[in-house]
Design a protein around this nucleic acid. Sequence first.
DNA 1: CATGAATGAGAATTCATTCAT
DNA 2: GATGAATGAATTCTCATTCAT
Lengths: 208, 208, 208, 208
Amino acid sequence: MAGGTKRLPRAVREQQMLDAAVTVFAENGFRDTSMDSIAAKAEISKPMLYLYYGSKDELFAACIERESSKFMDAMSIGFNPALRQRDQARTVIKEFLRFVDENQESWRVLYRVAVGTTNFSDLVTTSRKRITEMVAVLIKRGTTVDADDIDFELTAVALVGAGEAVADRISEGDVDLETATDLLVGITWRGLKGVGTHGNVEPAAENT
Amino acid sequence: MAGGTKRLPRAVREQQMLDAAVTVFAENGFRDTSMDSIAAKAEISKPMLYLYYGSKDELFAACIERESSKFMDAMSIGFNPALRQRDQARTVIKEFLRFVDENQESWRVLYRVAVGTTNFSDLVTTSRKRITEMVAVLIKRGTTVDADDIDFELTAVALVGAGEAVADRISEGDVDLETATDLLVGITWRGLKGVGTHGNVEPAAENT
Amino acid sequence: MAGGTKRLPRAVREQQMLDAAVTVFAENGFRDTSMDSIAAKAEISKPMLYLYYGSKDELFAACIERESSKFMDAMSIGFNPALRQRDQARTVIKEFLRFVDENQESWRVLYRVAVGTTNFSDLVTTSRKRITEMVAVLIKRGTTVDADDIDFELTAVALVGAGEAVADRISEGDVDLETATDLLVGITWRGLKGVGTHGNVEPAAENT
Amino acid sequence: MAGGTKRLPRAVREQQMLDAAVTVFAENGFRDTSMDSIAAKAEISKPMLYLYYGSKDELFAACIERESSKFMDAMSIGFNPALRQRDQARTVIKEFLRFVDENQESWRVLYRVAVGTTNFSDLVTTSRKRITEMVAVLIKRGTTVDADDIDFELTAVALVGAGEAVADRISEGDVDLETATDLLVGITWRGLKGVGTHGNVEPAAENT
DNA sequence: CATGAATGAGAATTCATTCAT
DNA sequence: GATGAATGAATTCTCATTCAT
């Protein structure tokens, strides 16, 4: 009646279910999403969800897993060792924002839903930590300033935070990708000049 | 008669209840917090909660309200019109981080719990938007570069995102306040130099 | 509407609930009894059951606990140290059968339902073991035959089995209490004469 | 094609399925056994079970049927009309215990699982009644005492109960077959002497 | 003959919320 | 003013059973 709900091969059903789950989780968060609503969205019966994924937690984990893979795949495109530091950073940032732009649900589930869900926030924290470390390495290699004076790790934390905030805007759809990329690239590199040399870089002007 | 059933003045009770609620909400999030656990923490009966606050939603709203006020009060200290732009920014940032450091639960409830809670995420979004606007104004006034070329609003978004990320670290307790302040101040001002002039500021060095 | 379902003190409700639970468990067994049916029988809502007993398992455990106590109390009447061995045995057996007669549901729940229920069969097994040991001691003291030749423990097992079988009949209501008591008393004592002296006691007659 | 999908003749399949079913039912009881687990144990698909047996109830009935037949066959060996009463009883008891010893699952399913299963306890009750009647006849013929004074039927109930209790011990594997046989034989015949002559047979000794 | 795919119906458990005292 | 008692309405999860291939 609903149409097309007939005897699909396992692999297809799996994706169908994950699609539905990601959509609903992204929309309502983990706790406010019922297995019933996921089943309804996927146009299948609830037992199927349990048959394929065992429990709500495991279903959510599978969502995270899949979206996380998608994300990593997208990112890996940017990691071209042939590129110079600066170009590499730009490419990665652009791919990141493009991914968020084209996969709003993934972004929401991974970084806005999972993070606030008991048992899963650690996943995000860990993933974020790995990314932060990579950023820290990247900016460290791109800097001549005496390394001891700079807290590269915390700087990376700030840059990643900035990136996520901009990504949220992107995912809300009202920001131009190119502009956002330029902005983040700018902050990233300029953020390095003089880091650790407290306040020696003057703002362009002082009024008031 | 039964013991422990003190008749407290309304104002005191209210705070007692909000204290408990904030603590538990901060710990477990909105959906994973039961009215029972709040009542238990506050050492009062559940009907009291309903008598004073009507519903779980309203109780949570009251928490947000109170913590938000605390936050705003703390922030307002930094807004000294007598200060120069640069000093003002530094003061605000410092007060912000100090607040997060001293009020971890407030920070968590306001920015990590409410944001992921249906019906309340808008509150955060709105509040964040106000702050972002203020930052945008601040940096705009601190910049001489041709304003049309710069997306001050998006820049502010990024800076606020960086601030929140650093705040999370502060709230986890493993970061020095002064260092973090310097870092954010640095990013803020340096982030402005050359914004809008795509990539004309070279990183300190190019290797690879 | 159902009548009398109003605001009872905890202790009363507890008994009311256990009464219903024992009745329904005795009737249908553990697995075939739903919490719904117990709640219906007790004329209360399901959450009450959980509020008072936490889970189906715990509710069942509470039933076992209460019925077991009843049973033990009834039995203890028979243990009058002033009585001679023979009289004591008779008294105990009589009290046992009287208990079964007057508390059919207790008997069923304790010895016919719990025994077949995962997680609870051990309770019965243990209890039965204790009783068997007591019987073993009793018959041992009542026997002059060379103790080494007799497996008092296994004999006790057999006697207890006989007792339970007769109890089942009693609980079905078609057997006279006095007759049953005489029968068990008879088997108990006569079962001792010559135990261990293989077959030296001839049956009264041989035909065929 | 997929492998392991052998076309077996119906009779073989049937046994394979019953074997699995009996094993799992014996282990977990009726309600705690899922059709899935039986199918898994039998290494066939669930629809096969339904194809051959129609429903869980019918499958269980088939188990009971088969095990019951096995049991009856084993028992019939003992019924040698050529034997004298005493020898016949001993043979039957021995065959019974031997059967339990060698077919623990049968014993468990027939007398410990079915008995506690809605819709099937009657089967056990009926079977047990038949056996009890046979025992009643046997002991009646072996007794000279005035028949009117003795409740042979109830005596048989007790003896059967004793037998089942000892059988349980046997099935737990910690009892010697010969010893157990002697014990039951002894109780059976001695239990008769003086049955109906209330308490005129003194225990061997009186202390206390 | 055999099975992977699918589900209707129910069972346990939880929780926000409300009265009667 | 304060609370112990009570529940309606979900929610997660399971299982016997049935098709379409």
